[in-house]
Design a protein around this nucleic acid. Structure first.
Lengths: 343, 343
DNA sequence: GTGAAAGCGCTAACAC
DNA sequence: GTGTTAGCGCTTTCAC
């Protein structure tokens, strides 16, 4: 049976209010009183009951993080960053995964954790414009992390998808590649990561006055390594000529790289390839992967910051949208300055 | 202002207890009453306040998961499995990372979340025998996942470190390799993962009547890809002959593989290599990594099960220790049946 | 500076 | 079957 404030106050010979004051660093307490209280706390090994505290105060200091799945390296690293940023501000993080389908994503949103969580960091995956109302009506302070629902109903911290993909594509073009596969498209999608990155790819081609060829666009559903690998394999069977790949994320790129090499193609000799996300692993792949660093740390910091402001009620104004700067990280899979002989 | 039980009861024209009964699926309620209550709940969009519920009931249905860090793929995948197992039983998971140093590990243990979490799943990293009392006195139901503190003070779900490492080593020996590097040792450690896996390695050598050579044991502190890569690089500089590597986890193996290939050595042609953990990525590395699958899913399921039993107070007996079965997964980096010409 | 007391929203005796 | 009520442990208003 854990000790309560009452136990402490009884042992210290003061009132419960005084104990509460000590715990909450209320400044005007006689030093001697504080000593007594602290001694009693130590003796009883007292810890405040957090349920009671949050029932009374209306704050739990817990933030919910809604992501597709942790076994996806990007989200694991994002969660890691979010938890560090949260911990630095005295907040805990309750993670909820919703997988890859719309139904469970909606289910997780519906399952409200009133009183258990003060706010939500939500990385959208499958929801879109028709779910705008759902997002708008979430009963908790919420900051969005995905890329859908622009001019959205909520604060939104985004990475620069279009610009990043454009930079990756331009990087390949600059090194002399001309026939670039876009790997990871989601047909019909416009404002999701896939749609935006495809836009960046197209913009880079247009700026270079190169034609956009449907033939070079490869659709891939989930962006896992296996999917990248399989998609590239079947693309190779089609016999379409190409000398570069703009993969829409790192795991796709790593999977594709594997398929290329299995097929006897050298990277970057025959085919140069870029990824997107800068997950840890890209530094250590063979070859090391050129990628776009979307600023994960900064996204996490900013999102937590915005959310805590909303929770504190410090801002009442319209939703804010913050685009975090990206960086192109040139590594071996698509070195800079290289010029290809063939093709 | 969210609706409360009172609001619902008022609107439905029944008492608060009746509403509570409906919510908690108390069986003996007139259908008509239940209808009225459900209608009121829907109209007010009522959700139970979880802080209040857990203050009152003493249960939060939240489980704490203490792990070193989520950016480590093994722990991300473990967390994923734990969260799925927990979700299937109506539990949420609050993850706390403590990094790689003893001090923050102790700090996380000390920071008790009384009332916020019903129990702990704790994957020990740096603590050892001298911390036995600390573990023993944790004020919450706790199930251990790491490998230290055998015959420990708590329920413990372990992977078969010794047996797994022995199987990996035997696998290499069976394919004709004779000079096997043990990669990832922690000098002086006995009952941690590194110590146990080294024991497995030694046992396999002994069983094959091969000498144990200190020269072939490579120490690596944290088991990240980079560390594996660097350690292998400096080992290569020493010029010691070898034809196989038993890496103590997958990321070490992947890093080492990279260093080997950079050095012009073929895998598995010149050097065969095995990992440990069976992280997703091992299927897609180049070459695909032979590894030990420690049974992550089953570990998660079992650990949650034991923990919930403890929380429910269904068991009062001595701590249980459960070793989950492992599997060797032979892939390209160390194929079975292969016989090497050289060396 | 410190104490008394109300009440956050819920569950569960207990009464009827 | 349903209602009344005490109280989980805390914060906070208001006295003094």
């Amino acid at each position: 049976m854990p000790a309560t404030l009452h136990d402490v106050s009884r042992l210290a010979g003061v009132s419960i209010k005084t104990v509460s004051n000590v715990i909450n660093d209320y400044p005007y307490i006689r030093a001697e009183t504080r000593e007594k209280v602290l001694a009693a706390i130590a003796e009883l090994d007292y810890t405040p009951n957090l349920s009671a505290r949050s029932l009374r105060s209306g704050k739990s200091n817990v933030i919910g993080l809604l992501i597709p799945e942790l076994r996806n390296a990007y989200f694991a690293e994002l969660a890691d960053s979010v938890m560090r940023a949260a911990a630095a501000r005295g907040q805990s993080v309750l993670i909820q995964q919703f997988g890859n389908d719309r139904e469970s994503e909606l289910a997780v949103l519906r399952a409200r954790r009133a009183g258990m969580v003060d706010g939500l960091l939500y990385s959208m995956l499958t929801l879109d414009e028709r779910d705008r109302a759902t997002i708008e009506e979430l009963p908790l302070p919420t900051v969005l992390l995905g890329e859908r629902l622009f001019n959205g109903p909520r604060d939104h911290v985004t990475m620069q998808n279009v610009e990043g993909a454009q930079a990756a594509t331009e990087h390949l073009l600059r090194s002399g590649r001309r026939r670039l596969v876009a790997l990871g498209a989601h047909p019909g999608e416009v404002i999701g990561s896939a749609g935006l990155r495809l836009t960046g790819y197209r913009q880079a081609l247009a700026a270079a006055r190169l034609p956009f060829e449907e033939d070079l666009v490869v659709s891939v559903g989930p962006w896992h390594r296996r999917d990248g690998s399989l998609a590239m394999r079947s693309f190779l069977e089609r016999g379409v000529e190409f000398d570069g790949v703009v993969a829409f994320n790192d795991t796709l790129a790593l999977g594709a790289m594997r398929a290329l090499q299995d097929h006897g193609l050298g990277v970057p000799g025959d085919v140069a390839i870029t990824g997107f996300d800068n997950i840890d692993e890209t530094q250590f792949s063979m070859p090391a992967l050129t990628t776009i660093d979307p600023g994960r740390e900064e996204i996490a910091e900013t999102a937590i910051e915005l959310l805590l402001e909303r929770i504190a009620g410090r801002v009442e104004d319209a939703p804010r949208e913050i685009a975090v700067p990206f960086r192109l990280i040139a590594r071996e899979s698509a070195p800079l300055g290289e010029r290809v002989a063939g093709v």
